[in-house]
Amino acid sequence: MTIEESKEYVGIWVTEDGNIRHELSPNNRYDEARGTRKSAYQGVYKVSGNHIDYKDDTGFTADGEFRNGILYHAGMVLYKEI
């Protein structure tokens, strides 16, 4: 089963040091916090299989991959907050 099928991508994903946090909402919007800066980036995302594509509200795009319950995105490793 892919993460798209399970919908387990919805929630908060955070780097090990807690500096970067991605909140993936069920309405396909995301909010990224960096350090003490809340809502540093916001935009939309789309999950296809185990792949995620991001497009922030300024038009910048990025992507990532979910593998074994971990989100790999732009050189970062994020873990789902429980």
Rank of each mutant, 00 (worst) to 15 (best):
G11E: 04
D57E: 13
A40Q: 13
D56L: 10
L78D: 01
D57G: 02
Y79V: 07
G64S: 11
K46A: 14
N19Q: 12
D57M: 04
L24V: 10
S48L: 04
M1H: 02
G59W: 14
G35C: 09
R37N: 15
S25A: 15
I70D: 03
A62V: 07
A62E: 11
F60D: 12
N68I: 08
Y72Q: 03
E23G: 07
Q42C: 02
Y30F: 09
V77I: 10
Y79F: 11
H22M: 07
T36H: 13
I3D: 04
G35E: 13
V44N: 15
S6I: 05
G49R: 08
D57L: 01
E16D: 13
S25M: 15
G11L: 06
G11I: 11
E65N: 05
Y79A: 01
T2S: 14
V77C: 00
G49K: 11
D57S: 13
K55Y: 02
K7I: 05
E32T: 14
E65T: 11
D53A: 12
E32S: 12
Y54N: 06
K7P: 02
I12D: 02
I82Y: 07
S39Q: 15
P26R: 08
R29N: 14
T58Y: 14
E8R: 09
S25R: 15
V10W: 02
E4F: 01
G75W: 13
R29C: 12
G69E: 08
G18D: 05
M1P: 03
H73K: 09
I12F: 06
I20L: 03
K80P: 07
G11P: 12
V44G: 12
M76Q: 09
G43Q: 08
A40H: 15
K80W: 02
G43H: 13
T2N: 10
K7V: 09
I20P: 00
K55S: 00
Q42S: 13
V14Q: 07
D31P: 01
E5T: 02
I82H: 03
G75E: 10
R37A: 15
E5R: 09
V77G: 02
A33Q: 08
Y9A: 07
L24F: 06
Y9I: 05
E23Y: 03
A74M: 00
D57Y: 14
V14E: 11
H73D: 03
E4R: 03
K46M: 11
I20Y: 04
A74W: 12
K55F: 00
N27D: 15
I70K: 00
P26A: 13
I70H: 00
N28F: 07
S25D: 14
G18Y: 02
T2R: 08
N19W: 04
Y41Q: 14
H51D: 10
A74K: 10
R34P: 00
Y45A: 11
F66G: 04
Y9S: 07
E23A: 13
D53R: 09
D31E: 15
V10N: 03
M1K: 03
Y45N: 00
R37W: 14
V77N: 01
Y9M: 09
